[in-house]
Simulated scan of single mutants.
Amino acid sequence: MVKVIYVLNGPNLNLLGKREPEIYGSRTLDDVRLLCEAEAGKSGLQVVFHQSNAEHELIGWVHEARETAQGLIINPAAYTHTSIALLDALSACSFPVIEVHISNIHKRESFRHHSYVSARADAVIAGCGVDGYQLAMQHMATLISAS
């Protein structure tokens, strides 16, 4: 049976490669998807990859993942700092959750230092650029194989 990992991306991540490349780099969201799929393939995992600027869509995908996935990697972007609803949805999941941030949120504006999602995350990766997704997928494979 193939194990499924959801990779969810929050608001404005559709602009990767175009928006503030000095912070987020030049690679695109499609590059991130390909990176995740390649890394997942090494462990026999399958990726379901989504991005939305709408909080309710992200929550809906978390609910969907509860029924079909063995793990979830999420870059909630700005919802990191504001969404109790996203935290509640993730808290209803029994599988591993890894939070990813392209930039080091703790080195940025003070309002970015708090993450609601971190209260549920099994691991947090920040400041590694889009390579953080690859690290997250590697760690997810380890978490799933240990369960």
Rank of each mutant, 00 (worst) to 15 (best):
G60Q: 13
G71L: 08
V62A: 03
F95K: 04
E99N: 02
C93R: 00
A78T: 07
S103W: 05
S83N: 02
I105N: 01
I84M: 14
V100D: 09
L90G: 09
C93S: 14
L87R: 15
H106P: 02
N75A: 07
A92V: 11
E55I: 07
H101M: 05
D88R: 01
A85K: 03
L72P: 05
K107P: 04
N104Y: 11
L58M: 12
A85I: 02
V100L: 10
I98G: 04
R66W: 00
Y79E: 02
R66A: 14
T82A: 11
R66T: 04
I59A: 03
S83T: 06
A92H: 05
A77K: 03
D88K: 01
Y79D: 00
S94A: 15
D88W: 00
L87D: 04
V62K: 01
I98L: 12
E109D: 15
H56T: 06
N104S: 13
R108I: 11
H50E: 15
I73L: 05
V100S: 10
A65C: 12
H81W: 10
H81Q: 11
V62Q: 07
A89C: 09
Q51P: 11
N104P: 08
N104Q: 13
I105Q: 04
Q70S: 15
V100E: 00
E99K: 14
S94D: 12
A54R: 15
A65D: 00
T80L: 12
I59Q: 06
H81I: 05
G60W: 02
L72D: 03
T82L: 13
E67R: 11
I74M: 12
E99P: 02
E57T: 01
P76I: 04
S83P: 13
R108K: 11
H50D: 07
Y79S: 04
Y79T: 06
P96M: 11
Q51V: 01
I98S: 08
I102P: 11
F95A: 11
R108T: 05
L87M: 12
A77H: 03
A54W: 12
H56L: 14
Q70Y: 09
I84V: 15
H81M: 10
